[in-house]
Design a protein around this nucleic acid. Structure first.
Lengths: 184, 184
DNA sequence: CCGCAGACTAGACACTGTCTAGTATCTAGT
DNA sequence: ACTAGATACTAGACAGTGTCTAGTCTGCGG
């Protein structure tokens, strides 16, 4: 698939090296061929971002499911999976959270929303048992999302190392849980 | 100055619209002229990022200084200033925390470090008076940095609105302070 | 069997970053 | 005062890019 190849280039050589013409050359088709699939270069990027949101959602859901009977561990696993995704696909994550001049496309927006819904689901599992000190799970999830996204940004922009990022996740999750002994 | 004009284009039309040749045209010089100042397009972007770190540091320092005798309010003011900077200069913040394939230049790295030092200074003011529940101010500052960066990313990528971002800052700062009544 | 939509080709256009050789100007250093 | 060198610039070239257009081929539903 064209998108698979584009994703690989994005991962290996960054967004600046991602060229429609080069993708066409690699695929052995003419330079205009990709236009049948993506009207624009930005349409290609949107499709990549959309897939990124889906994949990231899958990965954190799976990570959380690996710890079914411990909220704290499930939360840590999900957050850790998020940062590991960021390290594996730094340029893709940049693309997903890029500050574009015009509003994101409908497809990207809804994919991002589904990721957030996945995170909310993970948080809710603990909320029912009173693991957090507030009833507003949505707002708390937003804060968690911002925190893991920020940690990921610090790691991918090489401001901190991956182990430091993992330590920050630990600190953050601990703060999310009610009581000083929770999850420790 | 060339950088001022570049910053304006970045702010108004995004990074994709930032072209060396167009800058040269606007300045009324030949298309090769900018090369005397910046060897590369990426050198221009690095210079912009560096200036961004300096300006952001100035703004949060000033915000914190406006509340000299209340840690909680100073912290909130600084975090709020960070997010306001992000809203005002979304493309610039993207540039500052972009996940590039090769390591950031020395100048950018040290500018980022100075920003972090500024944040540490703001946090330390409260730490001396036991406002936080841990002695490791550096690690706590890192977590704060990640949190405000993450909130900014959510706002600039239009996942949440600015008021939601402000609310998240409130939630985050409250969690950073020791005791349930702290700063509220 | 027809018509048509979708994937593709091939050429053109305007634009970009980058490299080069050459020029003017200004600034030490002797 | 003269020279050497650095600095800012011009002008031309090159390869590469995204995008648009007109035309071709092919498979499929009516």
């Amino acid at each position: 698939m064209l998108l698979d190849r584009a994703e690989a280039v994005l991962r290996e050589r960054g967004i600046d090296a991602l060229s429609l013409r080069e993708l066409a050359r690699e695929a052995g088709v003419s330079h205009g061929a990709p236009r049948s699939h993506f009207i624009d270069r930005s349409a290609l990027l949107d499709a990549l971002a959309e897939r990124g949101f889906v994949r990231l959602g899958d990965e954190i859901r799976e990570a959380a499911a690996s710890e079914p009977d411990d909220y704290a561990r499930a939360l840590r696993a999900a957050a850790s999976a998020y940062v590991r995704f960021a390290v594996r696909e730094p340029a893709l994550l940049d693309l997903m959270f890029a500050a574009k001049v015009d509003a994101p496309s409908e497809a990207v927006r809804s994919a991002a929303e589904r990721l957030f819904a996945t995170m909310t689901g993970i948080m809710s599992a603990g909320a029912g048992a009173g693991a957090y000190d507030t009833g507003d799970v949505g707002r708390l999830t937003l804060l968690l999302a911002a925190t893991v996204q920020g940690i990921s940004a610090l790691v991918t922009s090489r401001r901190i190392t991956m182990p430091q990022g993992e330590a920050l996740i630990d600190d953050a999750i601990t703060r999310f849980l009610v009581g000083p002994s929770a999850g420790r």
